[in-house]
Amino acid sequence: MTSQSLPKEFKELECWCSRWALSNSDERSRQRQNSTLDELEEFYSSLLPLAEKALVHLSGFKLGELPKEEALLLKLLLSLAEVTPAIEWYGQPRVIDGLDPERFPAALLLKDLSP
């Protein structure tokens, strides 16, 4: 997709955009639940080496005034936040011995791209 373009230092992450540049936390949560651990690990380990650089880069941009490329990069990082407990805590996509998140939907979402 031509619109799925990241800032040039992060071009190599563009392959993740179609799957992980999502519009809100409900979609990110659903994508995590519907992925295998292998898929999540691949995404996590591709993002991790560039995550610090990406955050330093995004620190220079005010939320709400993001160019398209930076907005897309932020979307990938928000998905990284969603996926992280699956990797760093559980070793499986879902919370172990946890209530089904589908029973506990978000009633009020934080907006991704504005304050």
């Binding site: 955050l55 220079g60 936040a81 992280t84 934080l110």
Partner: peptide
């Protein structure tokens, strides 16, 4: 969050708390 990077910090707080 003032910057886009801080939005990531927020999301981490939300996800950890929820899980």
């Amino acid at each position: 969050a003032q910057t886009a990077a801080e939005r990531f910090g927020q999301e981490n707080s939300i996800v950890e708390l929820r899980d």
